[in-house]
Simulated assay, not measured.
Amino acid sequence: MKRWLSILSLVCSAAFAAEVRVNESGQIEAHGRDVRVFRGDASQPLFGSVVKTSDSVCFAAALPLAPGETYRIEIQTADGAWSTQRLKFKLPAAVAPTVSITPSPTMLPANALKLYLHFTQPMEQGVFLDRITLQRQDGKEVRGAFRETELWSPDGKRLTLWLHPGRQKTGVNLNLDEGPVLQEGRQHTLRIAASWRSTTGVALGKEAVFALAAGAVDHTCPNPLRWQITAPKAGTRDPLVVRFDEPLDPSMLVSALKAQRGEGEVAGVVSVAADARTWSFTPVVGWTPGACVLKIDPLLEDLAGNNLLGPFEVDRDAPAKAAATTTLSFKVGG
């Protein structure tokens, strides 16, 4: 219902000035002693409730107003006379969704495991393998590039795009038979079909093209001791900023780092840069001076799936070397 309120309010304010408006609850308000609302040229008014005040009246329809329908509003003025206004519930113009990618710019280790596609609207599901194509530098398609698992965010706007682990992990059958998805030192192109539609049936309308550069493979665990912390000043709501020496999983970063004072977690809002190399935290209230700790989820991954506990690929002959710490200290200065 709320999607239509702004449209209806706009039409009312333009046509009837201050005489009629629609409030945030979808109720019709008018200056006068009474109001009746009719659908089109119907002889019987809509069912609903009417609440009167000293100089205005509010009508709440029993059923939501219908988009595209014309309504007749009869208002009784202070002198007892009735005036009639008409309005049309206009349908909004269809807006095509757009898509972006993280991390961006997209420089990946050759053994990268996943990317994230971000859409501005919820998208149709179950079709992503037919809508996404990965091409090599020579223009040839990389067939079987993606894992068939389709993982969407709850709002249907973010797709986790898995590069097939069986091809990205060295020594397994798919890797040996078909080769890795990404070729080290080469450029690749990710294409999103223009025909991919939102859940409302509106297509992207234009093919989205993203360049992917593949660097060296990465089998090293993230190391927080190489991160740079910029501490805020006391009495401000300046962000706590952490800069990484490599891109980390942008989705996991939203919840993997926690600012803590004593035993309590500091409340605030997290922001992750598009390149996944910078994490920022803005507190709800101003910082107080003193020592704080940044707690790190040891499962936090880099783009190749290595986390603080060990690398994604385990060498049985060489024990995994985990990160040296899962906490970092910082001090809020005066």
Rank of each mutant, 00 (worst) to 15 (best):
L182I: 01
S100G: 15
G334E: 15
L115A: 06
K90G: 03
A66L: 15
E19C: 01
G262I: 09
G166C: 05
P239M: 09
K140A: 07
L87W: 06
K233N: 14
D177A: 11
V314K: 13
F330C: 02
T120W: 03
R131V: 03
E246K: 10
G205M: 08
A274Y: 04
T98W: 03
G262E: 07
R186T: 02
Q228P: 04
R226I: 00
A112S: 13
G201W: 04
G290A: 09
A208N: 08
E301L: 01
I101H: 01
P180T: 03
A194S: 07
P92H: 02
G305N: 06
T53W: 09
L299H: 15
D302F: 01
A62E: 11
G179H: 03
D317Q: 13
I132S: 12
E69I: 00
A66Q: 14
R186H: 01
D245G: 10
T160A: 12
W196H: 01
T282H: 06
R186M: 01
S271D: 06
F312R: 10
I132M: 14
Q135C: 04
A304D: 12
E19H: 06
V314Y: 12
P97S: 07
A291T: 10
Q183M: 03
W287C: 02
P250E: 00
T288R: 15
L303W: 10
S13T: 14
L87K: 08
V293G: 03
G26L: 10
P232Q: 02
T77V: 04
T120S: 15
W152V: 03
A203W: 08
G215N: 05
V37P: 05
A78R: 14
A322S: 12
E124Q: 15
H188T: 00
G290V: 00
V50C: 01
L63C: 11
G68I: 00
T102C: 12
T149K: 14
A203I: 06
G40F: 00
F312M: 03
K140T: 11
E148W: 09
D138M: 03
R191K: 15
E141H: 00
P92C: 02
Q125W: 05
P103L: 07
A324T: 09
T77A: 14
R33V: 00
S49P: 04
R143N: 08
R186Y: 04
A318K: 15
N173F: 11
P289M: 05
T199V: 02
A62W: 08
P122Y: 04
G179S: 01
T98G: 13
L294V: 06
V254L: 12
D41F: 02
F146P: 07
S251N: 06
E141I: 09
G235W: 08
L8K: 03
N111V: 13
F210P: 00
L182F: 04
H219A: 10
Q135E: 13
D275N: 14
K169G: 10
K88I: 13
S6W: 10
L46H: 05
P92Q: 02
I192Y: 00
F244S: 05
G68L: 09
W4Q: 13
V272C: 06
Q76Y: 06
A274L: 12
P165M: 10
T236H: 05
A78W: 12
C58F: 08
Q44A: 12
P45R: 10
V332W: 01
T230K: 11
P232S: 05
G26T: 02
G310D: 11
C221K: 09
G185T: 05
T230I: 15
P165R: 06
W227I: 13
A213Y: 10
H164F: 09
D238Y: 07
